[in-house]
Each structure stands twice: as C-alpha cells, then as structure tokens.
C-alpha cells in the first residue's frame, strides 16, 4: 500500500511541476487536476471514503468553474508566454546562492529530526488522546448515527460544521459582490 501511495505522490508532484511550466492556462488547469484525483485514490487507500467522495466531487466542480473562468479570458491571455528569456551574460547570483544554501541546510535539519521522531510515534490508526477514544467507543450510542464521521461532525463538533457552512455563505456573498462591480463605469 505504501508503495502505491508513494507512486501517487510522485505523480502529484510531477503534475504540480508541469502546472507551473505549462504553455497555456487550460493545460495548466487540467494537469492541476492530476493532484486532486490522485489525492482521491490516496484517501481511498487510507480508508477514508467520506473524504474521497467530497474530494472527488469538489475537484470536478472546481475544474468546471476554473475552465469557465479561463474560457472567459481572451485568446491573447491564453497564448501569452509564461517564461521570460533574459538576454546578456549569465552569472551566478550571490544572493540566490545564499538563499539556496540556507534553505538546503534548513531542509536537511528538518528531515533529520523528522526521521528521528518516527520510531517514537504510535502505529498508523492507533489514537492516543482520551477524547478520540471516547468518540470511537461511545459515538454510536450517544449520537445514534451509524456513520461515525457524520455523528461527530453534526453532534460533538456542531460548531465546526456551522463554521464551514458560514465560510461557504461568506464566499458566495464575496463572489456576488465582486462580480457586481463590473457593470459600473469607472
């Protein structure tokens, strides 16, 4: 299972790198879809069907909305070159070399401590906090819901769900407000 997830992660990284270097916006969006759909398969392998369903459908609708926005832009925008060719002498910039060095040292240090901390963790799927134990053992009888995820989302953590719904409402209000300004003459 871990090998398949590793392959999918490499595919996701390749997709996001291609997104940065794509020739036009449409192929950038399509290659960005690789990230989302690979994530769906990873969620299925990690036994999270709830997340997988939501991720799959949201990915499709986001893709449709993004393509609707892209098709709105003109042909010149789509064929605009994303990379710039610099003419002249190439030399190693001292400042960027310093940045690279510092970032490399930081990454190596973080990776070292990350690897060192892995043996101290519980195995995958074992919960350590007391609250999670209570939720898992008594969730079904306390909420009456056979699906534990929904039971936690709408009963124990009702505030979270209210927050999520409010975020969606605020996002829609923001989009409607921004798109309304367009008709005005400046």
């Amino acid at each position: 299972m871990e090998a398949i997830i590793a392959v999918l992660l490499i595919l996701m990284i390749a997709g996001s790198i291609y997104t940065l270097h794509a020739r036009d916006l449409l192929s950038a969006i399509v290659s960005y879809g690789i990230v989302g759909f690979a994530l769906v398969i990873i969620f299925l392998f990690l036994k999270a069907p709830d997340l997988a369903i939501v991720q799959l459908v949201v990915e499709i609708i986001t893709l449709i909305i993004m393509i609707a926005v892209i098709r709105n832009s003109s042909k010149e925008d789509l064929q605009e070159r994303t990379t710039v060719k610099v003419e002249g002498v190439h030399y190693i910039n001292l400042r960027s070399a310093l940045y690279l060095l510092v970032t490399g040292i930081l990454c190596i240090g973080l990776f070292y401590y990350f690897v060192k901390s892995i043996p101290g963790l519980e195995p995958f799927g074992v919960h350590t906090t007391r609250m999670a134990t209570t939720y898992i053992e008594q969730g079904a009888e306390l909420t009456g819901s056979a699906n534990l995820v929904t039971g936690i989302l709408f009963d124990f953590r009702g505030y979270d769900t209210l927050g999520e719904a409010t975020i969606l409402l605020t996002a829609v209000i923001g989009i409607l407000t921004i798109l309304r300004i367009k008709g005005k003459k400046v």
Binding site: I61, S145, G151
Partner: peptide
C-alpha cells in the same frame, strides 16, 4: 443516508449542484 453510509450533506449537496 448521511448518518448510515459514507457521505453526508457536503458530498451530496455537491453532487446535486453537479
């Protein structure tokens, strides 16, 4: 069937919107 099988309001609502 959100309280019985995987899914729920968010997933189902997105499918209806689709």
């Amino acid at each position: 069937h959100g309280h019985l099988t995987p899914g729920g309001g968010f997933a189902g609502g997105t499918i209806i919107a689709g």
